[in-house]
């Protein structure tokens, strides 16, 4: 099938504003949008720039705004996207070139929530920190995040103000806040209670719809707000 691919391109050395360019590509219905981008880059215009690594929905590096919604280019099939497809860089980030954005602010927010287990105590048996299946279940959903930034860059609050920590950072904070083995819960909740933290969520559910791992992001965000309330943090 013939597909009309519109890509919003930007070359910082030549352009002042991003602009649309169109490419005609031949594709199978089971091809992914990433395959189309490869076709353009490998056979039509080698200057097209985008990020991708595993190309199988695991590394989360090819999140893009495809047909008006954030998705992973390596997961979205042509049969679902149709014969006229638009591809843009994710919103709210500085475009480095074409579909490639500067992810540093995203990583800064991520690092801010201390996304690692904090526990300096010696385990009871001296070997491992045990927890019940029920305790493990509490962070099962949020531990599946692949940090693709599809959620954060689909959020209208983040579009208007990038100082908002964003859904991805909150999801990763939640993963440790509800972990019974972690001892830095209070510290993380303090970070989340910041004016740029969890309270800025407006429950638009764009993040939930954009998440390629189907993480219940808004549920996690609201659970963090409840934990802040229970801890009496103001």
């Amino acid at each position: 099938m013939d597909v009309q691919l519109r890509i919003r391109r930007f070359n910082p050395e030549a352009d002042t504003e991003p602009h649309w360019e169109e490419y005609a590509v031949e594709a199978e219905p089971t091809d992914r949008v990433l395959d189309l981008l490869h076709q353009v880059k490998w056979y039509q215009d080698g200057t097209l720039t985008f990020r991708r690594s595993c190309a199988h929905g695991v590394c989360g590096s090819d999140a893009m705004l495809i047909n008006g919604q954030n998705r992973l280019a390596c997961e979205y099939l042509v049969k679902d996207a149709g014969t006229s497809i638009t591809v843009e860089a994710i919103r709210g980030m500085t475009i480095v070139k074409d579909l490639l954005v500067d992810m540093e602010p995203f990583w800064d927010s991520y690092k801010q929530v201390m996304p690692f287990l904090v526990n300096d105590e010696i385990p009871a048996d001296g070997k491992e920190r045990r927890q019940s299946q029920a305790d493990r279940e509490r962070y099962e959903d949020t531990s599946r995040c692949i940090l693709c930034a599809a959620c954060t860059t689909s959020c209208p609050v983040f579009w208007s103000d990038q100082s908002y920590v964003g859904p991805a950072a909150i999801v990763n904070a939640h993963r440790f806040i509800v972990d019974s083995r972690d001892t830095a819960k209070e510290e993380r909740l303090e970070i989340m209670a910041d004016p740029d933290g969890v309270w800025r969520c407006r429950t638009t559910f764009n993040c939930v719809e954009a998440c390629p791992r189907d993480i219940k992001i808004t549920k996690a965000i609201l659970e963090v707000t409840q934990e802040i309330g229970k801890a009496g943090i103001r």
Binding site: P156, F205, E209
Partner: peptide, 12 residues
């Protein structure tokens, strides 16, 4: 704003 309008976003 160039992003697909979902019912939840419309509700907001």
């Amino acid at each position: 704003f160039g992003y697909r309008l979902s019912w939840a976003q419309l509700a907001w």
